[in-house]
Simulated scan of single mutants.
Amino acid sequence: MPPAADLGRALVIITGASRGFGRAVAQDVSRAVRPGSALVLAARSGKELRALREELTESEAGRAGLKVEVVTADVGRTEDLEDLLRRSEQVFTEDMDHLVLVNNAASLGDVSRYTRDFTDPGEVDSYLSLNVSSALCLTARVLRAFPQRAGLRRTVVNVSSLCALQPFPSWVLYCTGKAARDMAFRVLAEEEPDLRVLSYAPGPLDTSMQVEARSNTADPKLKKTISDLSAQNQLLSCEESCSKLMKVLLEDRFTSGAHIDVFDV
């Protein structure tokens, strides 16, 4: 079966959309939805979000009627989740045939220390709240707000990482968070057979998080590996990786709940 030409007339909710991979997803999705679609973009940086909204509104898709809403939100805060959901419900129309949620918001965490150094439960809880609990709770809220019905496809994307599958010394928070998220979305796929669930690992991206990792990673061997990726021009651009994600979504042949790496596409 040939891949779909587009994502349909869709409501697409993207977290962490102001920069990096999330911004690339917003740009690609805007070109892959039909007129009458809406994007709801959330991030903590309101200024960058508003610049992105202006860019997309002035694009060919924007001129054709794409609606772009931005929500300055910390997805770890309940009141911000409620605001994001409220704005999504406001722009949803009954003639939309596809709901897409992209859980992209995440942080690297403190990679300057090893597992034995994390003795404060509050510090760990704070990290997991932003990187695991928020994605789980936002997904649950979105699915309840937009339940399964005839004529509506629903797709949930978890932006994952190789770190969900492999241990990286001094990256205990990041690896734990990504592994937990992958499992949460695998469980969701088992529970909701009518839902399309994908965990996509975008690969080593040329982003500010990569700069942070090169600067702060405690483990010397891992730090060298990360630095070599940059020095040898082996980092992927967000646009390169995002094009692979769009290919997977448009082909729609993945097993729901699967973890797919950019290098496997």
Rank of each mutant, 00 (worst) to 15 (best):
L152R: 12
A184S: 06
L152V: 14
A179M: 10
M209A: 13
R181H: 01
V157E: 03
F168L: 15
V159I: 15
S199F: 00
S199N: 01
R181G: 05
P202A: 00
A179K: 14
S161Y: 04
L165W: 01
A201N: 09
K178N: 03
G203S: 03
K178E: 00
K178I: 03
L162I: 15
Q166R: 14
D206K: 12
S208R: 15
Y200W: 03
A184I: 07
T207M: 11
A218V: 06
G203K: 02
P204W: 06
S208E: 11
L188D: 02
A150N: 12
L195E: 02
A184F: 05
E190Q: 15
D194M: 09
D206F: 08
R196Q: 13
R214C: 13
A218T: 05
P204F: 06
A179H: 04
G177Q: 00
N216F: 14
P202Q: 04
V197W: 02
E192S: 13
S199V: 01
R214E: 06
P169Y: 03
W171T: 14
Q166P: 06
K178Q: 05
R196C: 11
N216V: 11
Q166W: 08
E191D: 15
Q210W: 10
F185K: 04
D206T: 10
Y200S: 08
V172C: 15
P147S: 11
Q166I: 13
V172F: 13
W171E: 08
R186D: 00
L198H: 00
A201T: 13
R181F: 06
A213L: 08
Y200M: 05
L162R: 11
Q210N: 13
V159Y: 00
R196D: 10
N158Q: 02
A184V: 11
D194H: 09
R186W: 04
Q166G: 09
L205F: 06
S199D: 00
S160G: 10
R149N: 07
L173D: 01
D182C: 01
A218D: 07
C163V: 12
D206Y: 02
F168T: 11
R186S: 13
R214W: 08
L195Y: 10
G203Y: 00
K178S: 05
A164I: 10
G151A: 08
A180K: 01
R214A: 08
C175T: 09
T217M: 13
S215T: 14
E191F: 14
T207F: 04
V156H: 03
A189K: 10
Q148F: 07
L195F: 05
V187D: 01
C163M: 14
A213N: 10
C163N: 11
S170Y: 04
G177R: 00
D194K: 15
E190A: 15
Y174V: 04
R214N: 12
S215R: 14
V211D: 11
R149H: 09
V187M: 11
L198G: 02
Q210L: 14
S170M: 12
M183F: 10
K178C: 08
S208F: 05
E192L: 15
E190F: 10
S215Q: 14
